[in-house]
Design a protein around this nucleic acid. Structure first.
Lengths: 215, 215
DNA sequence: GGCGGGATTATACGATCGGACAACGAATTG
DNA sequence: CAATTCGTTGTCCGATCGTATAATCCCGCC
Protein backbone atom coordinates (compact mmCIF):
# COMPACT_ATOMS: atom_id res chain seq x y z
CA UNK A 1 0.00 0.00 0.00
CA UNK A 2 1.45 3.30 -1.04
CA UNK A 3 0.73 6.21 1.20
CA UNK A 4 1.68 9.32 -0.65
CA UNK A 5 1.34 12.16 1.81
CA UNK A 6 3.45 15.29 1.84
CA UNK A 7 6.20 13.29 3.49
CA UNK A 8 5.92 15.53 6.54
CA UNK A 9 3.98 13.14 8.75
CA UNK A 10 4.91 9.61 9.71
CA UNK A 11 1.65 7.88 8.85
CA UNK A 12 -2.10 8.51 8.77
CA UNK A 13 -1.53 11.16 11.37
CA UNK A 14 -3.66 13.58 9.45
CA UNK A 15 -6.79 11.56 10.06
CA UNK A 16 -6.28 11.71 13.80
CA UNK A 17 -5.32 15.37 13.68
CA UNK A 18 -8.61 16.04 11.91
CA UNK A 19 -10.45 14.04 14.57
CA UNK A 20 -8.91 15.99 17.45
CA UNK A 21 -9.56 19.28 15.70
CA UNK A 22 -13.14 18.23 15.00
CA UNK A 23 -13.69 17.29 18.64
CA UNK A 24 -12.35 20.64 19.80
CA UNK A 25 -14.43 22.53 17.26
CA UNK A 26 -17.67 20.64 17.91
CA UNK A 27 -17.19 21.00 21.67
CA UNK A 28 -16.57 24.71 21.32
CA UNK A 29 -19.09 25.76 18.69
CA UNK A 30 -21.51 22.88 18.33
CA UNK A 31 -22.34 21.00 15.17
CA UNK A 32 -23.93 23.84 13.23
CA UNK A 33 -21.43 26.38 14.49
CA UNK A 34 -18.47 24.37 13.23
CA UNK A 35 -17.49 24.30 9.59
CA UNK A 36 -15.48 21.56 7.99
CA UNK A 37 -13.22 24.21 6.54
CA UNK A 38 -12.44 25.57 10.00
CA UNK A 39 -11.79 22.08 11.30
CA UNK A 40 -9.43 21.40 8.44
CA UNK A 41 -7.66 24.68 9.12
CA UNK A 42 -7.25 23.78 12.81
CA UNK A 43 -5.78 20.45 11.79
CA UNK A 44 -3.58 22.15 9.22
CA UNK A 45 -4.85 20.05 6.33
CA UNK A 46 -6.73 20.69 3.13
CA UNK A 47 -10.46 20.69 3.69
CA UNK A 48 -10.96 18.18 0.94
CA UNK A 49 -9.47 15.55 3.22
CA UNK A 50 -12.54 15.51 5.43
CA UNK A 51 -14.94 14.02 2.88
CA UNK A 52 -12.12 11.72 1.87
CA UNK A 53 -11.52 10.27 5.33
CA UNK A 54 -14.94 10.60 6.90
CA UNK A 55 -17.35 10.94 4.04
CA UNK A 56 -19.78 13.37 5.56
CA UNK A 57 -19.68 16.00 8.26
CA UNK A 58 -22.10 13.91 10.30
CA UNK A 59 -19.81 10.89 10.22
CA UNK A 60 -16.87 13.06 11.24
CA UNK A 61 -18.98 14.23 14.17
CA UNK A 62 -19.80 10.65 15.10
CA UNK A 63 -16.14 9.69 15.02
CA UNK A 64 -15.27 12.68 17.20
CA UNK A 65 -18.04 11.78 19.65
CA UNK A 66 -16.79 8.21 19.79
CA UNK A 67 -13.38 9.57 20.61
CA UNK A 68 -14.66 11.76 23.44
CA UNK A 69 -16.85 9.07 24.95
CA UNK A 70 -14.04 6.58 24.60
CA UNK A 71 -12.04 8.66 27.07
CA UNK A 72 -15.15 9.00 29.20
CA UNK A 73 -15.80 5.27 29.19
CA UNK A 74 -12.23 4.55 30.23
CA UNK A 75 -12.57 6.94 33.12
CA UNK A 76 -15.91 5.49 34.13
CA UNK A 77 -14.64 1.94 33.99
CA UNK A 78 -11.88 2.99 36.32
CA UNK A 79 -14.49 4.48 38.62
CA UNK A 80 -16.63 1.36 38.46
CA UNK A 81 -13.62 -0.79 39.30
CA UNK A 82 -13.16 1.35 42.37
CA UNK A 83 -16.86 1.13 43.05
CA UNK A 84 -16.71 -2.62 43.39
CA UNK A 85 -14.86 -2.14 46.65
CA UNK A 86 -16.94 0.81 47.71
CA UNK A 87 -19.40 0.31 50.48
CA UNK A 88 -19.16 3.39 52.63
CA UNK A 89 -19.40 7.12 52.40
CA UNK A 90 -15.68 7.64 52.07
CA UNK A 91 -15.58 5.54 48.93
CA UNK A 92 -18.54 7.37 47.43
CA UNK A 93 -16.76 10.63 48.08
CA UNK A 94 -13.73 9.30 46.22
CA UNK A 95 -15.94 8.42 43.29
CA UNK A 96 -17.41 11.90 43.16
CA UNK A 97 -13.99 13.43 43.54
CA UNK A 98 -12.56 11.40 40.69
CA UNK A 99 -15.54 12.12 38.46
CA UNK A 100 -15.37 15.88 38.95
CA UNK A 101 -11.68 15.91 38.17
CA UNK A 102 -12.27 13.80 35.09
CA UNK A 103 -14.94 16.15 33.77
CA UNK A 104 -12.64 19.08 34.44
CA UNK A 105 -9.92 17.39 32.40
CA UNK A 106 -12.29 16.39 29.61
CA UNK A 107 -15.05 18.98 29.29
CA UNK A 108 -15.65 18.01 25.67
CA UNK A 109 -18.06 15.21 26.35
CA UNK A 110 -20.20 17.43 28.55
CA UNK A 111 -20.24 20.00 25.78
CA UNK A 112 -21.24 17.41 23.22
CA UNK A 113 -24.06 16.11 25.40
CA UNK A 114 -25.36 19.59 26.06
CA UNK A 115 -25.21 20.56 22.43
CA UNK A 116 -27.20 17.66 21.12
CA UNK A 117 -29.35 16.65 24.09
CA UNK A 118 -31.63 19.60 23.63
CA UNK A 119 -32.59 18.91 20.04
CA UNK A 120 -34.81 16.14 18.76
CA UNK A 121 -32.95 14.75 15.81
CA UNK A 122 -30.85 12.00 14.38
CA UNK A 123 -27.68 13.08 16.15
CA UNK A 124 -29.41 13.19 19.52
CA UNK A 125 -30.87 9.72 19.07
CA UNK A 126 -27.52 8.37 17.95
CA UNK A 127 -25.56 9.79 20.87
CA UNK A 128 -28.18 8.74 23.43
CA UNK A 129 -28.56 5.19 22.18
CA UNK A 130 -24.87 4.64 21.64
CA UNK A 131 -23.29 6.45 24.57
CA UNK A 132 -25.59 8.03 27.11
CA UNK A 133 -27.83 5.04 27.72
CA UNK A 134 -25.00 2.70 28.81
CA UNK A 135 -23.66 5.49 31.01
CA UNK A 136 -27.06 6.02 32.55
CA UNK A 137 -27.65 2.36 33.24
CA UNK A 138 -24.21 2.00 34.79
CA UNK A 139 -24.94 4.87 37.13
CA UNK A 140 -28.40 3.49 37.91
CA UNK A 141 -26.99 0.16 39.10
CA UNK A 142 -24.35 2.09 41.04
CA UNK A 143 -27.10 4.11 42.69
CA UNK A 144 -29.10 1.03 43.55
CA UNK A 145 -26.04 -0.47 45.18
CA UNK A 146 -25.43 2.67 47.20
CA UNK A 147 -29.03 2.66 48.26
CA UNK A 148 -28.93 -0.97 49.41
CA UNK A 149 -25.74 -0.27 51.33
CA UNK A 150 -27.42 2.75 52.89
CA UNK A 151 -24.69 4.99 51.54
CA UNK A 152 -27.36 7.02 49.76
CA UNK A 153 -30.86 7.60 50.96
CA UNK A 154 -33.15 9.13 48.39
CA UNK A 155 -36.73 8.42 47.49
CA UNK A 156 -36.86 9.61 43.91
CA UNK A 157 -36.22 7.89 40.61
CA UNK A 158 -32.57 7.33 39.55
CA UNK A 159 -33.32 9.51 36.53
CA UNK A 160 -33.39 12.57 38.74
CA UNK A 161 -30.18 11.58 40.44
CA UNK A 162 -28.58 11.19 37.04
CA UNK A 163 -29.43 14.72 35.95
CA UNK A 164 -28.67 16.09 39.40
CA UNK A 165 -25.16 14.71 39.16
CA UNK A 166 -24.70 15.52 35.48
CA UNK A 167 -25.85 19.08 36.06
CA UNK A 168 -24.09 19.90 39.29
CA UNK A 169 -20.82 18.42 38.12
CA UNK A 170 -20.80 19.53 34.51
CA UNK A 171 -22.36 22.96 34.16
CA UNK A 172 -19.56 24.99 35.77
CA UNK A 173 -17.13 23.47 33.28
CA UNK A 174 -19.53 23.64 30.37
CA UNK A 175 -20.09 27.33 31.10
CA UNK A 176 -16.42 27.95 31.79
CA UNK A 177 -16.22 31.11 29.72
CA UNK A 178 -19.35 32.49 31.35
CA UNK A 179 -17.92 31.59 34.75
CA UNK A 180 -14.73 33.49 34.02
CA UNK A 181 -16.63 36.54 32.88
CA UNK A 182 -19.04 36.30 35.80
CA UNK A 183 -16.58 35.89 38.64
CA UNK A 184 -13.09 36.14 37.21
CA UNK A 185 -12.53 32.57 38.36
CA UNK A 186 -11.26 29.97 35.93
CA UNK A 187 -13.14 26.75 36.79
CA UNK A 188 -10.31 24.68 35.36
CA UNK A 189 -7.89 26.03 37.94
CA UNK A 190 -6.88 22.99 40.00
CA UNK A 191 -7.85 24.63 43.28
CA UNK A 192 -11.26 25.54 41.88
CA UNK A 193 -11.78 22.03 40.57
CA UNK A 194 -10.95 20.69 43.98
CA UNK A 195 -13.34 23.07 45.68
CA UNK A 196 -16.07 22.12 43.27
CA UNK A 197 -15.50 18.47 44.03
CA UNK A 198 -15.97 19.29 47.70
CA UNK A 199 -19.13 21.22 46.87
CA UNK A 200 -20.64 18.34 44.91
CA UNK A 201 -19.72 15.93 47.68
CA UNK A 202 -21.39 18.22 50.18
CA UNK A 203 -24.53 18.25 48.06
CA UNK A 204 -24.73 14.52 47.54
CA UNK A 205 -23.39 13.23 50.83
CA UNK A 206 -23.83 16.10 53.24
CA UNK A 207 -21.18 17.94 55.24
CA UNK A 208 -18.16 15.78 56.08
CA UNK A 209 -17.91 16.65 59.78
CA UNK A 210 -21.56 16.23 60.75
CA UNK A 211 -23.92 13.28 60.50
CA UNK A 212 -24.22 12.97 56.76
CA UNK A 213 -27.36 13.16 54.69
CA UNK A 214 -26.68 9.60 53.87
CA UNK A 215 -26.57 8.33 57.36
CA UNK B 1 -48.14 58.27 12.28
CA UNK B 2 -49.41 56.07 9.57
CA UNK B 3 -49.12 52.42 10.10
CA UNK B 4 -49.92 50.73 6.85
CA UNK B 5 -49.82 47.00 7.56
CA UNK B 6 -51.80 44.39 5.75
CA UNK B 7 -54.80 45.35 7.87
CA UNK B 8 -54.83 41.81 9.28
CA UNK B 9 -53.30 42.55 12.64
CA UNK B 10 -54.36 45.17 15.18
CA UNK B 11 -51.00 46.85 15.68
CA UNK B 12 -47.29 46.08 15.77
CA UNK B 13 -48.23 42.54 16.63
CA UNK B 14 -45.85 41.26 14.03
CA UNK B 15 -42.88 42.62 15.91
CA UNK B 16 -43.83 40.66 19.00
CA UNK B 17 -44.66 37.56 16.98
CA UNK B 18 -41.18 37.73 15.51
CA UNK B 19 -39.73 38.11 19.01
CA UNK B 20 -41.55 35.06 20.33
CA UNK B 21 -40.60 33.02 17.30
CA UNK B 22 -37.00 34.16 17.65
CA UNK B 23 -36.93 33.18 21.30
CA UNK B 24 -38.30 29.74 20.51
CA UNK B 25 -35.87 29.26 17.64
CA UNK B 26 -32.80 30.47 19.50
CA UNK B 27 -33.71 28.34 22.51
CA UNK B 28 -34.18 25.30 20.32
CA UNK B 29 -31.33 25.60 17.84
CA UNK B 30 -28.98 28.21 19.24
CA UNK B 31 -27.80 31.35 17.52
CA UNK B 32 -25.92 29.77 14.65
CA UNK B 33 -28.49 27.04 14.20
CA UNK B 34 -31.33 29.49 13.73
CA UNK B 35 -31.85 31.37 10.50
CA UNK B 36 -33.71 34.61 10.23
CA UNK B 37 -35.71 33.09 7.41
CA UNK B 38 -36.87 30.24 9.64
CA UNK B 39 -37.77 32.68 12.40
CA UNK B 40 -39.79 34.75 9.96
CA UNK B 41 -41.52 31.62 8.73
CA UNK B 42 -42.41 30.61 12.30
CA UNK B 43 -43.84 34.07 12.90
CA UNK B 44 -45.66 33.92 9.57
CA UNK B 45 -44.10 37.11 8.25
CA UNK B 46 -41.83 38.06 5.42
CA UNK B 47 -38.19 37.68 6.31
CA UNK B 48 -37.47 41.21 5.24
CA UNK B 49 -39.30 42.40 8.34
CA UNK B 50 -36.51 41.26 10.62
CA UNK B 51 -33.87 43.70 9.44
CA UNK B 52 -36.61 46.32 9.39
CA UNK B 53 -37.65 45.88 13.00
CA UNK B 54 -34.44 44.71 14.61
CA UNK B 55 -31.71 45.73 12.24
CA UNK B 56 -29.42 42.79 12.65
CA UNK B 57 -29.76 39.18 13.70
CA UNK B 58 -27.68 39.91 16.78
CA UNK B 59 -30.02 42.67 17.91
CA UNK B 60 -32.99 40.39 17.36
CA UNK B 61 -31.23 37.85 19.56
CA UNK B 62 -30.63 40.48 22.23
CA UNK B 63 -34.29 41.47 22.19
CA UNK B 64 -35.32 37.82 22.52
CA UNK B 65 -32.89 37.32 25.41
CA UNK B 66 -34.26 40.41 27.13
CA UNK B 67 -37.71 38.91 26.76
CA UNK B 68 -36.71 35.60 28.29
CA UNK B 69 -34.80 37.12 31.17
CA UNK B 70 -37.62 39.55 31.75
CA UNK B 71 -39.83 36.60 32.63
CA UNK B 72 -37.00 35.18 34.66
CA UNK B 73 -36.48 38.40 36.55
CA UNK B 74 -40.17 38.63 37.37
CA UNK B 75 -40.11 35.12 38.73
CA UNK B 76 -36.98 35.79 40.72
CA UNK B 77 -38.33 38.99 42.19
CA UNK B 78 -41.34 37.02 43.35
CA UNK B 79 -38.98 34.50 44.93
CA UNK B 80 -36.93 37.23 46.56
CA UNK B 81 -40.08 38.80 47.98
CA UNK B 82 -40.85 35.43 49.54
CA UNK B 83 -37.27 35.19 50.67
CA UNK B 84 -37.59 38.29 52.78
CA UNK B 85 -39.80 36.33 55.14
CA UNK B 86 -37.74 33.19 54.86
CA UNK B 87 -35.63 32.23 57.79
CA UNK B 88 -36.02 28.49 58.14
CA UNK B 89 -35.65 25.34 56.17
CA UNK B 90 -39.30 25.19 55.16
CA UNK B 91 -39.06 28.55 53.45
CA UNK B 92 -35.89 27.58 51.64
CA UNK B 93 -37.62 24.47 50.40
CA UNK B 94 -40.45 26.62 49.07
CA UNK B 95 -37.92 28.76 47.22
CA UNK B 96 -36.35 25.75 45.60
CA UNK B 97 -39.74 24.34 44.76
CA UNK B 98 -40.87 27.54 43.10
CA UNK B 99 -37.63 27.92 41.19
CA UNK B 100 -37.74 24.39 39.78
CA UNK B 101 -41.31 24.87 38.63
CA UNK B 102 -40.42 28.20 37.08
CA UNK B 103 -37.54 26.73 35.11
CA UNK B 104 -39.82 23.91 33.97
CA UNK B 105 -42.32 26.47 32.71
CA UNK B 106 -39.67 28.62 31.07
CA UNK B 107 -36.82 26.43 29.87
CA UNK B 108 -35.83 29.03 27.28
CA UNK B 109 -33.58 31.07 29.50
CA UNK B 110 -31.65 27.99 30.58
CA UNK B 111 -31.20 27.09 26.93
CA UNK B 112 -29.98 30.57 26.10
CA UNK B 113 -27.50 30.54 28.96
CA UNK B 114 -26.18 27.15 27.99
CA UNK B 115 -25.87 28.10 24.35
CA UNK B 116 -23.80 31.22 24.88
CA UNK B 117 -22.08 30.58 28.19
CA UNK B 118 -19.65 28.15 26.64
CA UNK B 119 -18.28 30.47 23.99
CA UNK B 120 -16.01 33.46 24.51
CA UNK B 121 -17.53 36.16 22.40
CA UNK B 122 -19.55 39.33 22.26
CA UNK B 123 -22.88 37.60 22.89
CA UNK B 124 -21.55 35.80 25.96
CA UNK B 125 -20.15 38.99 27.44
CA UNK B 126 -23.39 40.82 26.74
CA UNK B 127 -25.64 38.23 28.33
CA UNK B 128 -23.39 37.81 31.38
CA UNK B 129 -22.96 41.51 32.08
CA UNK B 130 -26.58 42.36 31.43
CA UNK B 131 -28.45 39.39 32.89
CA UNK B 132 -26.42 36.70 34.59
CA UNK B 133 -24.37 38.95 36.84
CA UNK B 134 -27.38 40.54 38.60
CA UNK B 135 -28.88 37.08 38.97
CA UNK B 136 -25.67 35.75 40.43
CA UNK B 137 -25.30 38.58 42.91
CA UNK B 138 -28.91 38.24 44.00
CA UNK B 139 -28.37 34.57 44.70
CA UNK B 140 -25.07 35.30 46.45
CA UNK B 141 -26.73 37.64 48.96
CA UNK B 142 -29.50 35.11 49.37
CA UNK B 143 -26.91 32.45 50.14
CA UNK B 144 -25.13 34.68 52.63
CA UNK B 145 -28.41 35.28 54.40
CA UNK B 146 -29.16 31.58 54.52
CA UNK B 147 -25.71 30.97 55.89
CA UNK B 148 -26.09 33.55 58.63
CA UNK B 149 -29.47 32.12 59.57
CA UNK B 150 -27.89 28.66 59.66
CA UNK B 151 -30.36 27.43 57.07
CA UNK B 152 -27.44 26.46 54.85
CA UNK B 153 -24.08 25.27 56.02
CA UNK B 154 -21.43 25.11 53.33
CA UNK B 155 -17.80 26.07 53.34
CA UNK B 156 -17.18 26.77 49.67
CA UNK B 157 -17.50 29.92 47.57
CA UNK B 158 -21.00 31.03 46.49
CA UNK B 159 -19.84 30.58 42.91
CA UNK B 160 -19.92 26.82 43.34
CA UNK B 161 -23.35 26.95 44.91
CA UNK B 162 -24.55 29.02 41.98
CA UNK B 163 -23.45 26.45 39.41
CA UNK B 164 -24.57 23.59 41.63
CA UNK B 165 -28.07 25.01 41.67
CA UNK B 166 -28.07 26.11 38.04
CA UNK B 167 -26.90 22.70 36.94
CA UNK B 168 -28.99 20.46 39.12
CA UNK B 169 -32.16 22.42 38.44
CA UNK B 170 -31.71 23.21 34.78
CA UNK B 171 -30.02 20.36 33.00
CA UNK B 172 -32.91 17.89 33.05
CA UNK B 173 -35.06 20.51 31.35
CA UNK B 174 -32.35 21.70 29.04
CA UNK B 175 -31.76 18.12 27.95
CA UNK B 176 -35.46 17.35 27.80
CA UNK B 177 -35.31 15.61 24.45
CA UNK B 178 -32.38 13.51 25.55
CA UNK B 179 -34.21 12.67 28.76
CA UNK B 180 -37.24 11.47 26.82
CA UNK B 181 -35.12 9.32 24.56
CA UNK B 182 -33.08 8.03 27.50
CA UNK B 183 -35.88 7.07 29.85
CA UNK B 184 -39.17 7.66 28.09
CA UNK B 185 -39.98 10.22 30.76
CA UNK B 186 -41.02 13.73 29.78
CA UNK B 187 -39.35 16.03 32.31
CA UNK B 188 -42.05 18.64 31.75
CA UNK B 189 -44.72 16.28 33.04
CA UNK B 190 -46.06 17.96 36.21
CA UNK B 191 -45.44 14.89 38.35
CA UNK B 192 -41.86 14.67 37.09
CA UNK B 193 -41.30 18.36 37.73
CA UNK B 194 -42.57 17.89 41.25
CA UNK B 195 -40.32 14.90 41.83
CA UNK B 196 -37.34 16.82 40.53
CA UNK B 197 -38.12 19.65 42.91
CA UNK B 198 -38.08 17.11 45.74
CA UNK B 199 -34.78 15.74 44.44
CA UNK B 200 -33.14 19.17 44.34
CA UNK B 201 -34.46 19.95 47.80
CA UNK B 202 -33.02 16.68 49.03
CA UNK B 203 -29.66 17.59 47.58
CA UNK B 204 -29.52 21.09 48.97
CA UNK B 205 -31.26 20.67 52.29
CA UNK B 206 -31.05 16.97 53.02
CA UNK B 207 -33.85 14.45 53.51
CA UNK B 208 -37.02 16.01 54.89
CA UNK B 209 -37.75 13.46 57.64
CA UNK B 210 -34.29 13.20 59.12
CA UNK B 211 -32.02 15.81 60.68
CA UNK B 212 -31.28 17.93 57.65
CA UNK B 213 -27.90 18.66 56.19
CA UNK B 214 -28.60 22.22 57.03
CA UNK B 215 -29.24 21.73 60.70
C1' DG C 1 12.62 4.02 -15.39
C1' DG C 2 7.88 3.59 -15.89
C1' DC C 3 3.49 2.42 -13.55
C1' DG C 4 -0.32 1.95 -10.51
C1' DG C 5 -2.90 3.55 -6.64
C1' DG C 6 -3.90 5.72 -2.56
C1' DA C 7 -3.11 10.42 -0.44
C1' DT C 8 -3.57 15.24 -1.28
C1' DT C 9 -4.84 19.38 -3.56
C1' DA C 10 -7.43 22.70 -6.29
C1' DT C 11 -11.56 23.90 -8.09
C1' DA C 12 -16.40 24.05 -8.74
C1' DC C 13 -21.39 23.52 -7.83
C1' DG C 14 -25.74 24.09 -5.63
C1' DA C 15 -27.78 25.54 -1.44
C1' DT C 16 -28.41 28.66 2.22
C1' DC C 17 -27.13 32.27 4.92
C1' DG C 18 -27.53 37.56 6.63
C1' DG C 19 -28.39 41.73 4.98
C1' DA C 20 -29.36 45.53 1.38
C1' DC C 21 -32.51 47.71 -1.50
C1' DA C 22 -36.22 49.39 -4.26
C1' DA C 23 -40.89 49.08 -5.13
C1' DC C 24 -45.59 48.68 -3.43
C1' DG C 25 -49.72 49.39 -0.28
C1' DA C 26 -52.44 51.63 2.91
C1' DA C 27 -53.53 55.01 6.20
C1' DT C 28 -52.77 59.72 7.92
C1' DT C 29 -52.36 64.56 7.06
C1' DG C 30 -52.66 68.74 4.54
C1' DC D 1 -57.61 64.62 -3.66
C1' DA D 2 -52.58 64.79 -3.41
C1' DA D 3 -48.60 64.16 -0.70
C1' DT D 4 -46.28 61.98 2.80
C1' DT D 5 -44.97 58.26 5.69
C1' DC D 6 -44.35 53.88 7.46
C1' DG D 7 -45.26 48.96 7.16
C1' DT D 8 -44.49 45.26 3.99
C1' DT D 9 -42.96 42.59 0.14
C1' DG D 10 -40.06 40.60 -3.40
C1' DT D 11 -35.65 40.36 -5.13
C1' DC D 12 -30.84 40.39 -5.22
C1' DC D 13 -25.86 40.22 -3.62
C1' DG D 14 -21.69 38.52 -1.58
C1' DA D 15 -20.16 35.14 1.63
C1' DT D 16 -19.99 30.68 3.35
C1' DC D 17 -21.51 26.22 3.74
C1' DG D 18 -21.07 20.79 2.62
C1' DT D 19 -19.66 18.05 -0.80
C1' DA D 20 -18.47 16.19 -5.43
C1' DT D 21 -14.85 15.78 -8.81
C1' DA D 22 -10.79 15.82 -11.43
C1' DA D 23 -6.08 16.78 -11.47
C1' DT D 24 -1.74 16.15 -9.07
C1' DC D 25 1.58 14.15 -6.13
C1' DC D 26 4.40 10.62 -4.07
C1' DC D 27 5.54 6.12 -2.77
C1' DG D 28 6.29 0.97 -3.43
C1' DC D 29 6.71 -2.33 -7.03
C1' DC D 30 7.74 -4.57 -11.67
Amino acid sequence: MARGAAAKEPAGDRRERILRAALAAFAQNGFDGSSTRDIAARAGVNHGLIPYYFGTKQKLWQAAVDLAFGDMKAGLDMLLADASITSDRERAAQLIHAHVHFVARHPEFVRLMHDEGKRRGARMRWIVDRHVKPLYEALATLLERGRQQHTLKFDFAPLHFFYLVAGSVGVIFHQAEECKRLSGVDPFDPAVVEEHARAVTWMLLGPPDEPATAD
